[in-house]
Nucleic acid binder design. Structure first.
Lengths: 228, 228
DNA sequence: TGTACATCAGTGAACGCGCGTTCACTGATGTAC
DNA sequence: TGTACATCAGTGAACGCGCGTTCACTGATGTAC
């Protein structure tokens, strides 16, 4: 067991994934070419099928891989902070998200961009996507437990109370509606800002998008979510 | 002039675009097929070249088309409101954006999703993209002129003052930094929330995403940007 | 330690398909006199 | 109003390319006795 054959197998599998990820940038997720990967690896195109049963399955592995690297990055950023330093954790998480997105643009596009037409993501990908989400959810839970309160007041939108009851059940956190709305807004803003930056919609506006982003994150954490 | 030939020409051009847009959904922007369009239109594939000089140029037209339909939708929403009803205008704009995105998912993906690899967007597309942006920018300008002030306070992030000076120059609006940061956050949150919804990242969380979205927009407008 | 057999990575040819783009051409529509 | 010519939409064949996937096969690595 873990003999020579197994070692080579993991190496080759990794090499295929590496080349596939490279192709994300040049060809796009919808056009990853098994034949080109095989060519780059100096093997027959049919040999790929000893490692992945189809192109779609390779895509699935790429997605799960991307999610779990993102998850690890966000977890690491969070774990490096003092548990009680809520604003520090929030900032670290948001900055780590942006960093990851900027240094892994192709992966970011794969998981957060336009869905690949014709590709049906299997269950496993959703599970992998929960990992980074859970870090944020946990932060909201900790903030609530430590008595942080948001200054914002949820509007009396029709059906909001029952909607948020469901949300709390879905994410498994029992926070006040104000905190929930504030947290969801803050996260949407962080995500939106990163998305706009990565996909090139703000090139003309910012000189250094990072400066604005840092201010945005700080403001959201302190003044919207009410972290300390 | 505007003879029979010209009429037929515009009709055929429109038909090509219509079929191309349909293909956005099924094939994705990167894989729009001129041959399939020609087949659907019962013409030789080479005939397409009497209307568009290349596949990329067709893509460009699609992008500009999408931007200008989005721009029109947002302008209409804004124009239907009393000029002094700032919160009403903000709400109308944000809801119109979401509506447009939901009913034109393929177009939304085309302009706001993963960039098409290998496609270099020409200048014209940027200009078309300014149309909806300008509506929001104008709202911020009006809010400033009418004395609306944001309750938030920009953090003392290094370089923020000079960065925002550039931003104000770029968008042509002279608003206080607080308003600018609040407005940019609010817009990022709206955009982020729509993006997450359209690309299917929140299916498990919300029962009715529209209820949360309405609350989000109202809260952002009143309590973050400080509109009245 | 050596032998017999099973496993499995990798091959190369083939199937059947699709694509964007060019080119010389036909024939109908439009224009100028 | 009619004729001669120019314009231009549309054709069909061709070029040169790429793709995912299957299949019968070889030969090296691993395993059981």
């Amino acid at each position: 067991m873990t003999g020579k054959r197994a070692v080579v197998r993991t190496e080759t599998t990794a090499a295929i994934i590496r080349h596939a990820r490279r192709q994300l940038e040049t060809r796009g997720a919808a056009n990853i070419s098994l034949r080109e990967i095989a060519r780059d690896l100096d093997m027959a195109s049919s040999a790929i099928y000893r490692y992945f049963e189809s192109r779609d399955q390779l895509l699935t592995v790429l997605i799960i891989d991307a999610y779990s690297r993102l998850g690890a990055a966000i977890e690491d950023a969070d774990t490096a902070c003092d548990r009680d330093d809520l604003i520090g954790r929030w900032t670290a998480i948001a900055l780590a998200f942006r960093d990851w997105a900027l240094t892994n643009q192709a992966d970011y596009g794969l998981v957060f961009g336009t869905p690949v037409p014709g590709y049906e993501a299997p269950e496993d990908t959703n599970a992998a996507g929960m990992r980074y989400t859970n870090v944020v959810v946990q932060l909201v839970a900790d903030a609530t437990a430590r008595g942080c309160t948001s200054a914002i007041e949820p509007p009396k939108t029709k059906g909001l109370v029952s909607e948020y009851r469901n949300v709390k059940k879905a994410i498994g956190v029992n926070a006040p509606d104000a905190t929930l709305l504030a947290g969801l807004s803050a996260w949407a803003a962080v995500f939106g800002a990163i998305n706009l930056e990565i996909f090139g919609h703000v090139d003309i506006v910012y000189t250094d998008p990072g400066v604005h982003f840092a201010a945005l994150v700080d403001m959201l954490g302190r003044q919207v979510v009410g972290l300390t």
